[in-house]
Amino acid sequence: NARWTTEEQLLAVQAIRKYGRDFQAISDVIGNKSVVQVKNFFVNYRRRFNIDEVLQEWEAEHGK
């Protein structure tokens, strides 16, 4: 399903906090979204969920 429920959106943001840009890991956490759908989520929801800021926090924690 290409549509993202609110629950899936929140799950994705939590997974980004945990896995950074590991699209496969994020896809696995959500369970019903492909890697391509996760990559599209990054692009389409970047502003709404401040994904750049979430990634900066992840990179700071993981030394990337």
Score class of each variant (00 low, 15 high):
Asn1Lys: 15
Asn1Leu: 10
Asn1Met: 08
Asn1Gln: 15
Ala2Asn: 15
Trp4Thr: 00
Glu7Thr: 12
Glu8Gln: 06
Glu8Arg: 01
Glu8His: 07
Gln9Pro: 06
Leu10Arg: 12
Leu10Gly: 08
Leu11Cys: 07
Leu11Gly: 03
Val13Arg: 05
Val13Cys: 07
Val13Glu: 04
Gln14Leu: 05
Gln14Ile: 05
Ala15Gln: 04
Ala15Met: 11
Ala15Asn: 09
Ala15Phe: 02
Ala15Asp: 00
Ala15Tyr: 03
Ile16Tyr: 07
Ile16Gln: 00
Ile16Ser: 00
Ile16Asp: 00
Arg17Asn: 06
Tyr19Phe: 12
Tyr19His: 10
Gly20Lys: 02
Arg21Val: 10
Arg21Gln: 09
Arg21Cys: 10
Asp22Met: 07
Asp22Glu: 05
Gln24Met: 09
Ile26Val: 07
Ile26Pro: 01
Ser27Val: 11
Ser27Lys: 00
Asp28Lys: 12
Asp28Met: 09
Asp28Tyr: 15
Ile30Phe: 11
Gly31Ser: 07
Gly31Tyr: 13
Asn32Val: 07
Asn32His: 01
Asn32Met: 02
Asn32Ser: 13
Lys33Cys: 02
Lys33Thr: 00
Ser34Asn: 09
Val36Trp: 12
Val36Glu: 15
Gln37Phe: 00
Lys39Leu: 03
Lys39Asp: 03
Lys39Glu: 11
Lys39Pro: 04
Lys39Gly: 04
Asn40Asp: 14
Phe41Asn: 01
Phe42Val: 07
Phe42Trp: 04
Phe42Pro: 02
Asn44Asp: 13
Arg46Leu: 05
Arg46Phe: 12
Arg46Val: 07
Arg47Pro: 08
Arg47Asn: 14
Arg47Gln: 15
Arg48Phe: 12
Arg48Trp: 03
Phe49Cys: 14
Phe49Gly: 06
Phe49Met: 10
Phe49Lys: 05
Ile51Asn: 10
Ile51Phe: 06
Ile51His: 04
Ile51Lys: 00
Asp52Asn: 07
Asp52Lys: 06
Glu53Pro: 04
Leu55Ser: 05
Gln56Glu: 14
Gln56Pro: 03
Gln56Lys: 14
Gln56Thr: 13
Trp58Lys: 08
Trp58Met: 02
Trp58Asn: 08
Trp58Asp: 09
Ala60Ser: 13
Glu61Asp: 04
Glu61Ile: 09
Glu61Ala: 08
Glu61Arg: 12
His62Leu: 09
His62Ile: 10
Lys64Pro: 08
